[in-house]
Simulated scan of single mutants.
Amino acid sequence: MAAVGETKHALEMVQVNGTDESCITFVLHEEDHTLGNALRYMIMKNPEVDFCGYSITHPSESKINFRIQTRSGVSAVEPFRRGLNELIDVCQHVLNTFETTVSNYKKQKEERME
């Protein structure tokens, strides 16, 4: 837990000494399966990724240990960043589609009431 006046980072990178950057565990604080599973799916679509998985250490802790292993010397940070950006794009598309549909529904409802 963060001390008073100390900021707690939402993301940490854990890397075993002596390993290259193709194998990194990211610790995402204050997150759960909602982000974990969606992000894992987006990252696994990347052909440079050998393994991507996550675990929640304990039900009472709200953090995810997110592991990525890549091939061809690609840094694990790149597919992680790309997966986050692609997930943001998908979420934005869903939000835009939802808002357009709600707007169209309200217009149709108003037209029927006239």
Rank of each mutant, 00 (worst) to 15 (best):
M1E: 15
E6R: 06
T7L: 15
T7A: 15
T7Q: 12
T7W: 13
K8E: 15
H9R: 11
H9T: 15
A10F: 09
V16S: 15
N17L: 12
G18T: 07
G18F: 08
D20A: 12
D20R: 07
S22H: 02
C23D: 14
C23A: 15
I24V: 03
I24H: 00
I24E: 01
T25C: 01
L28D: 03
H29G: 10
E30G: 06
E30C: 11
E31G: 07
T34L: 02
G36K: 00
A38G: 08
A38E: 10
L39I: 03
R40M: 07
R40H: 05
R40W: 05
R40Y: 06
Y41T: 04
Y41S: 08
I43G: 00
M44P: 02
M44D: 03
M44Q: 13
N46G: 02
E48F: 12
V49K: 00
D50W: 13
F51P: 05
F51K: 05
I56A: 02
K63L: 05
K63E: 06
I64W: 01
Q69R: 10
R71F: 12
S72N: 15
S72I: 10
G73Q: 10
S75K: 00
S75F: 03
A76M: 08
E78I: 05
E78S: 09
P79Q: 04
F80G: 02
R81Q: 09
E86I: 01
L87P: 00
D89R: 08
C91N: 15
C91Q: 09
Q92I: 08
Q92G: 11
H93D: 14
V94H: 10
F98I: 01
F98E: 08
E99W: 05
T100E: 13
T100W: 14
V102Y: 14
V102E: 07
V102N: 10
S103Q: 13
S103E: 06
K109D: 07
E110N: 11
E111Q: 14
R112N: 11
M113R: 14
M113A: 10
E114C: 13
